[in-house]
Write a protein that binds this DNA or RNA. Structure first.
Lengths: 111, 111
DNA sequence: CTACAACTTGAAGAATTACGCAATTTGCTA
DNA sequence: TAGCAAATTGCGTAATTCTTCAAGTTGTAG
């Protein structure tokens, strides 16, 4: 596999690697939303949100369309949902594994 | 949804956001491998690989077990494969979309 | 117990990325 | 056309992350 492809994949994942960006993608799973609604949902400054939206836009993960004074964002593909589901599954297992470890450590301390 | 959960999700994705780490995960999809084999496959210094392996280990995405003088790495869950497949699908669509855009730009230039 | 191989860890400088504030752009409306 | 609302952009500073090289473990073989 050509090296630049790893680069592209890595950049793609980095693009998702921000709490606000994740939050936005989750909100957009249920359909397009204007920035105004996103802003109301995310507890962040308008400029911060706008910057993170720009990151997602440049990566091609979301699209922005102007409708009068407002800008509406949407997922550029519904496949994002599958990705987030996979991620949640892995995270669940990993955290469960750490929970087990924690339990073991506690047992050890009592032993 | 609690804020720290977004944090956890974002960190998870950031963990994947490195070419070498992606490469390693792809290699491990076919089964556990000793560092030696990973090193032979990835074109990087031993210390670089080791550092990136440590990142994956700390995140709980891979496990390391010592077998004599060698250390064998494995995916901590096979679900990683699903995630990589989802990612590839999205990346394909996004790049195809950009390809279309590129085609349009070219057509425009000729128009 | 010396020496070598397989890995890992530490640390410093370079490069990226994030955050908050101010300044702009764009569209609508009085 | 003045003014306001909705978004975006620019920029300086702080925080992370990367990269490379040197040093340190751990295991095994002579």
């Amino acid at each position: 596999m050509p090296v630049p492809l790893y680069q592209a994949k890595a950049e793609f994942f980095r693009t998702l690697g921000h709490p606000l960006r994740i939050r936005v993608l989750e909100l957009l799973q249920d359909g397009p939303l204007p920035v105004r609604d996103l802003l109301a949902a995310v507890d962040a400054e308008a400029s911060s949100l706008s910057q993170q939206l720009a990151v997602l836009r440049r990566a091609g993960i979301v699209t922005a369309t102007r409708e009068g004074a407002t800008v509406v964002y949407a997922l550029s593909t519904p496949d994002v949902t599958d990705l987030l589901i996979s991620a949640r599954r892995i995270l669940t297992e990993v955290l469960a594994g750490q929970g087990e470890l924690l339990a073991e450590l506690r047992a050890e301390a009592r032993g």
